[in-house]
Design a protein around this nucleic acid. Structure first.
Lengths: 256, 256
DNA sequence: CCATTTATGCTTGTTTATGCTCATATTATA
DNA sequence: TATAATATGAGCATAAACAAGCATAAATGG
């Protein structure tokens, strides 16, 4: 077995189990422990992994790289359910604005049922997925491409969206807190969302239940900005009241 | 068996097995191990594979390949070679404009070797692939997303690029004819390319040899607009003269 | 037609990868 | 804390792989 091939294999094993001992790896790859150690030293040096006494664990760096892929996969059932509820509000021939979140991306396959839609987005993967739908005209904002969030951001992005007139905006967020603040983990996406709520007739906020009681770095919107809050699970009475008080209609998978 | 043909075969073998030893490859392709090693050195330099003591492993550019199955591109070896020539002209800290073609996409893995680059593009897959490179700041134009060509087009796209100042523009085309016309199969990409040649200091035209003697729907540029024409195979004397007469420098894999 | 270049194969000295042993360092446990 | 158990790093030997230089044959160019 070749050197690099073995290192690939080590990475694969670590991805599965999160960590592994030198002994385990040596046994699995039919080489001596000395060889494994030499591999680990090299891989550690390249920040592919982190060595520990006795073995190695995945480096946080590697985890970060696939951050979006992971986000995309997690809570997929919840996301599908939320999108199933949201799609009922959309009408044929509408114009939509979509954010770049994985939650909102889950609605894309459902858009095929409409005769025609026009969609603007600042999500680069979102745009790519949308472009495969025959019945949708897709527009993407211009600007700087940010890998972590798969977003196109910056002044041109704001300017572009400021000229769009949409029927619906579908937004997600990183957290909702008990002050009715809808928060995001980036200044720029927060700013973009403030532009978007000015440009769409109805604002649909799609949030799975894990977002409640979380406050992130930047307050993007307030609950009163949203026309609908769509979630898969009945929120606490406190939040249900808060939502109602802000003139926002709560839609959820469970009976309220 | 020709050089490039053999390298294609090596790639095919590696795609099947993920890795191969020098000995295996030599036996499979009926050449000496020295020849295989020389191929592997070259292919490693183009990031097609990773060399390792004893053989080679498929380049595990997970980040890059997630965006697009680069390996499924037609005429990949030719494109790699063209890009291997083009990369030599690029300098650290440059600003580039890339079109949305698959030919130009093949240069993306090679950009990792630079310390820093700024890249603007109207290709949506191109932008997504680029965004995985840590050393590159990526900008995408805004506009309508066209699925067929993976391009972002329209007035905003033109406007965006009209404000960019770049050191290099890397463009491909659908056809070059004996009148020195560089032609495209869409009015809008042709128009965009006319904007781009105004905004970049050096225009690099990347065309595999199949593009010669073909005229498509729209004349985007003329040979005199290009500073370099980069191709993998020596063009006919007629074309070589035409290129030279238009003040365009011909760079090709074969000796002129 | 001859001069050059290019691709390939062969030979040889050098480098690399690996496993083994043993002294040292780290962790676990009594 | 002291002691046992385990992991580690360094040095060494060996076999395999490698780079470089040279020679030959084919392709290319004038």
């Amino acid at each position: 077995m070749l050197n690099l091939e073995r290192q690939d294999e080590i990475l694969a094993i670590l991805s599965k189990n999160r960590s592994a001992t030198v002994g385990e790896l040596a046994k699995a790859l039919y080489v001596s422990e000395a060889t494994i150690r030499r591999d680990l030293i090299e891989m550690d040096h390249l920040s592919m992994i982190r060595r520990t006494h006795g073995g190695a664990v995945l480096s946080r760096n590697t985890a970060l790289e696939s951050a979006f892929a992971v986000r995309e996969m997690t809570r997929l059932t919840q996301k599908r359910m939320i999108c199933g509820l949201a799609i009922e509000l959309i009408r044929d021939n509408s114009t939509l604005i979509l954010d770049s979140s994985s939650t909102v991306m889950a609605i894309i396959p459902l858009l095929q049922r409409f005769h025609h839609l026009t969609v603007a987005t600042y999500g680069i993967r979102t745009a790519l997925m949308l472009s495969n739908l025959k019945n949708v005209d897709v527009y993407i904002v211009g600007g700087r491409v940010e890998n972590f969030s798969n977003s196109v951001l910056g002044v041109p992005a704001n300017d572009f969206l400021a000229t769009v007139n949409a029927d619906f905006a579908l937004l997600s967020c990183s957290g909702i807190n008990s002050h009715g603040e809808i928060t995001d983990d980036s200044l720029e996406t927060a700013q973009l969302k403030r532009v978007i709520v000015q440009r769409a007739d109805k604002i649909l906020l799609l949030c799975d239940s894990s977002k409640f009681d979380r406050t992130m770095m930047n307050t993007a919107l307030r609950l009163e900005n949203a026309d609908y809050l769509i979630t898969e699970k009945k929120p606490s009475v406190e939040y249900a009241n808060l939502i109602q008080k802000n003139g926002c209609q709560l839609i959820c998978g469970e009976r309220i």
